[in-house]
Design a binder for these strands. Structure first.
Length: 603
DNA sequence: GCCGTTTTCGGCCCGACTGTTTTCAGTCG
């Protein structure tokens, strides 16, 4: 998306300006970049429709920024950035990714040692050249080397799916000590971002007895925390906090907090930074002050024990952590409250009631041993019953994907017989549980499906997805997928943008056209819950919802343990503001089945 | 450079920590 490209350049300009003395100008670029990222519409379209004045309506975009956006749309470049680059030809983005290094240090490193990138920096540090620079020292030099090592090892961020199970393990271990009253994860992991930098865990201890008892409890928790298995480094250990690095390569901070501040601390450490900045401004406008110690009027603390009372005191709806990205949630949370006294306002839309973690009643994208996987259909069904599902759908790959043992028409018929048999048996035993037969058919480069329509029509539903030839030009790929959407037998499009996190970008496709076609035909878009996919992403989910396109959260499990991926898909749906009405596998079996049967004909 | 229910000029979120200093700038979250 072009908005992100421009935002990236604005960030770079911001950082480069910070090496000069004009700090407010730098902040303006940062704010403008943030605004661009928060937009749901492509600025290219805004400009086409409303010209430069349309751009100036975007928050934090004024005359100068609007001109630069137009410049980028027309020339693909922004001269201001070229000018700054010429002044200091360094890879600033790379250098400030080193922890402890910011724009000012980049400037000094370039001035004195002509350091332009990470390789130069590492060489200079290893040669001991940095310690003698003014305002630098031996310690700084060592820290730089350590940070570079960390950067190399972790290659940036971790997937939510890699890190969340580990965090739960830690939290469970901490709970066993029985000295903590509350334990919560905070930071990007609580917001369930798809990738995570580091982890914050906040706890309180029992304060009702004497202070010495509380302190002893805190000490015990911290001691236990730093002695967890897999700890490779400990620092910042004090009476209320400690930090560890685990052998997996990520850092975890533990903080012990007083009960009366716990809500404000949790709010503060959960972020996002952008969300918090706006919140503090709102507090200020109401004559209040918000920080991690509480919400204050003058010196008087008026909220802080829990998050709900803080949002309430700011005259806002409570905002779920997954929504706290400053992508419109604050305005909406405020708007509803303002509308309440005066219901003659057209509609108090307010924040949506996003889906909950126990709202899912079934999983419609599961692969069985027919695809060479480990688990039989019966084993998968038993696992699903244990989870508490009302239904599942077996959706094995079809014949084009030979590497996955894709099924042909005949094998699908054999599988149908087995599913019918199991269904009968389950019902005879009194289970209210159904197995549907679907398939995950392959969308060929010309948009056709690799299984005959006649065979598809005998299935309960059909998922179709792109599995090869993903490097097509945008128009061709869009056409390819739309042709599949228009196939009356296709009900669901799996992993609609094809990305694999940390490995592969999404393919080029016009998502607006996809939405139009799915809306017209009643086709459902999948939110694939595999932690490497999480496809659709949050902003596409929000767009689909606004369009009135229905979605389904599927795990794409290839063995029964992977049914547990569902929670990542739910997080993603929550981050995309999805409600129960938007997600068909939140619906009871009959309603969902009827929708699958009718949606194509009804549309 | 942006913005405006005290402003078209004068403000821009807040606090902790670190390493360098000898009172504080830079970085982080």
């Amino acid at each position: 998306m072009i908005n992100r490209e421009i935002a990236k350049i604005f960030y770079e300009i911001s950082q480069r300006l910070e090496t000069e003395e004009t700090s407010f100008k730098s902040q303006a670029y940062q704010k403008a970049a943030l605004s661009l990222e928060a937009l749901s519409e492509d600025v290219k379209d805004t400009y086409k429709r409303q010209g430069i004045n349309g751009l100036k309506e975007i928050p934090n975009i004024g005359e100068s920024m609007a001109e630069k956006i137009v410049e980028y749309l027309k020339t693909g470049k922004i001269k201001e950035n070229q000018r700054l680059k010429k002044k200091m030809p360094v890879n600033i983005e790379e250098l400030i990714s080193v922890e402890g290094i910011g724009p000012k240090m980049v400037r000094d490193l370039y001035r004195h040692l002509k350091i332009k990138n990470l390789i130069d920096l590492e060489k200079a540090a290893k040669a001991g050249k940095i310690r003698s620079l003014p305002n630098f020292g031996l310690k700084t030099e060592q820290n730089i080397l350590q940070s570079i090592e960390f950067l190399k090892r972790s290659k940036g961020r971790f997937l939510l799916g890699e890190i969340l199970p580990k965090v739960y393990e830690i939290i469970d271990a901490l709970k066993k000590v029985k000295k903590a009253k509350q334990i919560f994860e905070a930071g990007s992991i609580r917001r369930r971002k798809e990738t995570i930098g580091d982890v914050d865990i906040l706890i309180t201890v029992d304060e009702t007895k004497n202070p010495a008892f509380a302190k002893a409890s805190a000490d015990k928790m911290i001691d236990y925390f730093v002695s967890l298995p897999g700890v490779v480094k400990i620092w910042g250990k004090g009476s209320t906090k400690a930090s560890i690095r685990l052998k997996e390569g990520f850092d975890v901070d533990l903080r012990v907090l007083p009960e009366k501040q716990f809500g404000s601390a949790l709010q503060y450490f959960t972020g996002s930074k952008e969300h918090n900045i706006i919140l503090r401004k709102i507090a200020m406008n109401q004559g209040l002050k918000l920080n991690e110690y509480g919400l204050f009027r003058g010196k008087k603390m008026i909220a802080g024990r829990n998050e709900k009372e803080i949002y309430a005191a700011l005259k806002m709806d409570y905002i779920e952590p997954e929504l706290r990205e400053n992508k419109g949630e604050i305005e909406v949370a405020l708007r509803q409250i303002q509308n309440k006294p005066n219901q003659t306002h057209d509609k108090p839309n307010g924040l949506p009631k996003i889906i909950g973690y126990s709202d899912i009643l079934g999983d419609l994208h599961i692969h069985s041993n027919y695809n060479g996987g480990e688990n039989s259909i019966l084993e998968i069904a038993e696992a699903a019953i244990n989870i508490g599902y009302q239904y599942i759908g077996i959706a094995d790959h079809t014949k084009f994907l030979r590497i996955e043992h894709g099924l042909d028409e005949k094998q699908l018929t054999i599988q149908r017989e087995e599913i019918d048999k199991i269904n009968k048996k389950l019902q005879a035993s009194g289970f209210k549980f159904y197995i549907l037969q679907g398939c995950e058919a392959n969308i060929m480069p010309d948009g056709s499906i690799d299984i005959k329509d006649e065979a598809l029509s005998r299935l309960d539903y059909v998922i179709a997805g792109v599995h090869h030839q993903m490097k097509m030009p945008k128009e061709k790929m869009t056409k390819r997928i739309i042709k599949a959407i228009n196939n009356p037998n296709v009900d669901i499009i799996s992993h609609p943008t094809g990305r694999i996190l940390k490995r592969r970008d999404e393919y080029e496709v016009d998502f607006n056209e996809i939405l139009k076609a799915t809306k017209k035909t009643g086709t459902i878009l999948e939110i694939n819950a595999n932690p490497y996919r999480l496809d659709l992403n949050d902003s596409y989910i929000k767009k689909a919802k606004e369009f009135g396109v229905k979605m389904v959260i599927n795990t794409d499990a290839h063995r029964k343990e992977q049914l547990n991926f569902m929670k990542y898909g739910i997080s993603q749906a929550r981050r995309g503001w999805a409600e129960r009405k938007d997600i068909i596998n939140c619906w009871p079996a009959e309603e969902m089945k009827n929708f699958l049967k009718d949606s194509k004909s009804r549309a």
